[in-house]
Design a protein around this nucleic acid. Structure first.
Lengths: 343, 343
DNA sequence: CTGAAAGCGCTAACAG
DNA sequence: CTGTTAGCGCTTTCAG
């Protein structure tokens, strides 16, 4: 393990000069700089980031904490953020909180947070009280829908609007009985499933269509497998629908399989719309009609909020809501002109 | 920011005693321990992991470096490893190397590697020479197919066997002209695409079927979108096949869409098999016939090799190859008994 | 069972 | 432009 002082000795300079060279500071002569770099190369020296961090407090690393690596949404999110950070010379590391409150709390321990210059937190298990208790001195931006104390910076999607858009589209295309897959009518605090169910019920209400609890197919993990089983079971159990709004594309994929299991065709028997516009959604057969939450903007905003806090620790919290748009594909029919469009 | 010495002072003990309590060492009296813990709680003290790391060298963290977060295979891998590590009190952080050689090399800089107790590296852009040059003093386990210097510990899938199995199954089910999507017939060093193409050609050769370069549909990113376009283009360009072996499930998903674009039905016109058995593959419509690489065993082996090195830095390198198995689903037809099964 | 001293490798602050 | 001094917060080592 080569240290900086060994480099300094070999180059005949002080450690400070080596440090200055390595940090690109301009207070080093050109020839000295060159000699130092040669020795660095020669000895194969690499800086000890841990020591630098202990001394300087900066880490050069942003942490992203997500509930599960294997939900496609989070993989895409991580990928986007990582690419956006690279040009700024920062790098991203991703941790999985495992969706359990306990592990999420442990991921959020001050000890772990301190390892990052900033943290993007896509929490699901934490509630208001947990977040209230935490007083990190690391900039944090919350991604997602849970209710959070005002002092947190936060970026979230236009859940209600998007869900209403998707449901309205199903209605325009002729669906009259529309289930919500993964929806939740009430919860102690707003969360993704309740926000999206709200948009669904708003659209149905406005169109004078039923939106009773019988049309809600609840889910707990939002996995493809669970969604598939839930849909097949619901249909086999007598649920009659001609449309379905899935709260995420991930569960819409499960719905596609579950409807097929139940002997129903999409979009002929049941039309389907999702939310998230995953990369894969375009390439399903049929392509999934869905809501695009404007991923690039969301990522850019999240990083902007982080940078603001990095530059000014006292920056007042901002609360950004993304713009959504409807993406029409094959799981919904061409607009049914025989039935009057509402609104 | 509360420090250990503040806790010590408040508890009326030395920092060493606080350290001993926090590390669960047994050389502290029960009452002292209790008092320390009370003060820790009271002051909201949390250990500074950076300082601990600088002094002790241990980090409690394993790093996983993958080319891309948004390929489903890596998301699933990361999720599995993270869950397997949690019970051991270690935790996983994942980095994206971005598939470019440059960023992969930067992820592999000693500086970055030193931040982990061990590293699981799923490299793609690195070649033999790069890996030869690196002499990390952190335990590393390579996951994947690239040729690596002997001194590296390594876990890989049964690529050739699996691909042969998949192709043989297509043949048994009546396919005669079988393309390989994403295959590569030659490369400077073995890699996933060449290994899997090799299994494909072995099966065809043995059955006396064609396996000429015209049946190879090359890919560069192995993304769904690229695969879809490549398949549609190949078919539109006159490629006539009744079977297709996709080197990954990810590209098989693209093939499903591309074949549909080209007006071909799966499995009626073209049968399809993939490799990886992703979580989603079971839930496609039709379900994807694929090769299961035995994920749990691969993960367990990778962690075993890591532990071995952690316990004994001089542990001789091991080279593990996983067992594969064929998973038959709807993208292949029931066995075609009218055509003689080969072999 | 508890404590004092030393130092991990680096950088901030200042002196020359 | 370069060097010296001090110390980040912890754990190792050794002494009581």
């Amino acid at each position: 393990m080569v240290t900086m002082s060994e480099v300094a000795r070999a180059a005949g300079v002080s450690v400070m000069t080596v440090s200055n060279v390595l940090n690109g500071r301009s207070n080093v002569g050109a020839d000295t700089r060159l000699r130092v770099l040669e020795v660095v190369e020669e000895l194969g020296y690499e800086i000890n980031l841990t020591a630098r961090r202990l001394r300087s407090g900066r880490t050069g690393t942003i942490g992203l904490i997500v509930p599960q690596f294997d939900l496609h949404y989070y993989g895409e999110l991580a990928s986007r953020i990582s690419e956006a950070l690279a040009p700024e010379g920062m790098h991203l590391v991703v941790e999985q909180s495992g969706a359990s409150r306990e592990r999420e709390l442990s991921a959020l321990s001050l000890a772990r947070l301190q390892q990052y210059d900033g943290v993007l937190l896509s929490a699901v298990g934490l509630d208001m009280a947990d977040l209230e208790r935490i007083h990190p001195d690391v900039p944090i931006v919350l991604l997602g829908e849970q209710a959070v104390p005002d002092r947190y910076h936060r970026v979230r999607m236009g859940n209600v609007v998007g869900s209403r858009l998707a449901t309205e589209h199903l209605i325009r295309c002729g669906a009259h009985r529309i289930a919500v897959l993964g929806g939740k009518l009430s919860a102690p605090h707003p969360e993704m499933a309740t926000c999206r169910a709200q948009g669904w019920s708003q659209a149905l209400e406005q169109a004078g269509l039923p939106h009773d609890p019988g049309l809600v197919i609840p889910l707990t993990t939002y996995s493809i497998a669970e969604a598939r089983a839930a849909v097949a079971t619901a249909i086999d159990g007598g649920l009659e629908v001609d449309g379905m709004f899935a709260v995420t594309d991930e569960v819409a994929i499960g719905a596609l399989a579950g409807l097929h299991d139940a002997g129903l065709r999409v979009p002929d028997d049941v039309q389907l719309a999702g939310f998230d516009n995953l990369g894969i959604s375009e390439h399903l057969v049929p392509g999934l009609t869905t809501i695009d939450p404007g991923h690039p903007v969301m990522v850019a905003e999240a990083l902007r909020l982080l940078r603001r806090q990095l530059e000014d620790r006292e920056a007042g919290p901002e609360h950004v809501v993304g713009d959504v748009s409807l993406i029409v594909r094959g799981t919904t029919r061409a607009r049914d002109t025989s039935s009057p469009a509402p609104g």
